[in-house]
Amino acid sequence: MSQTPGKHPETRRKAPAAQADPGGGPSGAEGLARRALGRYGEDLAVRRLSETGIGILDRNWRCREGEIDIVASDGDAVVVCEVKTRRAGSFEHPMAAVRAGKAERLRRLAECWLERHGGPPPGGVRIDLVGVVVPARGAPRVEHVKGVA
């Protein structure tokens, strides 16, 4: 029995096209792998910060200006924390990824967060960076640098 094209749309469906990452990154399997790596790095960063007594206030906070990976409290200071995760052997070390433009954007994001959460704290605001390097084998290396910007 032959089928006329279009009579049974369920047999004529195309695979959905890969959708672009809303953040402008790669789409498809590569984009999923990068997001999973980034999420893994953020989870490790939260664990490291918590182990040092830093309290986590917010994760992946977004506004029109962009996203803050982690907002935390260290004593009476608010900490805006950027997390950069790379596989070992990548072109650039994660700590080299925060340049002047990114630092300025983090300062603007910190201002937005503070406006929506009661203003500046008595201890001020600090911008930290957590770099995570994930080797092919063995434990990841997590490095926390305070006051990068």
Rank of each mutant, 00 (worst) to 15 (best):
I54F: 02
I54M: 05
P120K: 03
A110R: 00
E115Q: 05
R99V: 03
A33P: 03
Q19P: 06
K102L: 09
H144Y: 04
P120A: 12
G38W: 09
G119T: 10
R13N: 09
S2Q: 12
P122S: 01
L37G: 11
D128V: 02
C63W: 10
T85G: 04
G25A: 10
V142T: 07
G23R: 13
L32D: 14
L32N: 14
P9S: 09
A100D: 01
E42I: 08
P26N: 15
V80F: 13
G55Y: 05
V145Q: 07
G25E: 08
E67H: 09
V134S: 07
R99L: 08
P121F: 02
P120G: 06
R107D: 09
W113H: 06
H144D: 04
G101Q: 12
A110G: 12
R99K: 13
G23H: 13
K146R: 15
G38V: 15
A29K: 14
V133R: 03
V125C: 04
L106I: 07
R141Q: 15
D76P: 01
A103Y: 04
R107H: 11
H93A: 15
H144E: 05
P5M: 03
H144S: 03
G28A: 15
V130M: 08
H117M: 01
H8E: 08
I54S: 00
Y40M: 06
R105Y: 01
E92P: 01
E82I: 10
W113T: 01
R35V: 02
S50A: 12
E65F: 07
V80Y: 01
V132L: 07
R35Y: 11
H8N: 14
G6M: 10
R47P: 02
P135H: 06
C63M: 05
S27H: 14
R116C: 01
A103E: 03
A103D: 03
A88H: 08
G25H: 01
P120H: 05
R108P: 10
K7C: 10
P122W: 02
V148M: 11
R86V: 07
P135A: 03
G131M: 02
V134R: 01
V148K: 00
C112N: 13
V46N: 06
L109T: 01
A96H: 12
E65S: 15
G124N: 00
G24P: 13
P94N: 06
V134N: 05
R13P: 07
Q19F: 11
A100C: 07
S2I: 11
V134P: 00
D43S: 13
G101D: 15
G53L: 11
S50R: 06
V125F: 04
V148L: 10
G41H: 09
G6C: 11
G123D: 00
R141G: 07
D58C: 08
P120R: 12
M1S: 14
L106T: 10
M95V: 10
G53W: 00
D69C: 11
G124A: 02
K102T: 04
S90F: 01
R47L: 14
K146F: 08
R126A: 15
I56A: 09
I70W: 08
E51I: 05
A72P: 12
R107W: 09
M95T: 10
V134C: 04
V133C: 06
M95K: 07
A33G: 09
M95G: 10
R107L: 08
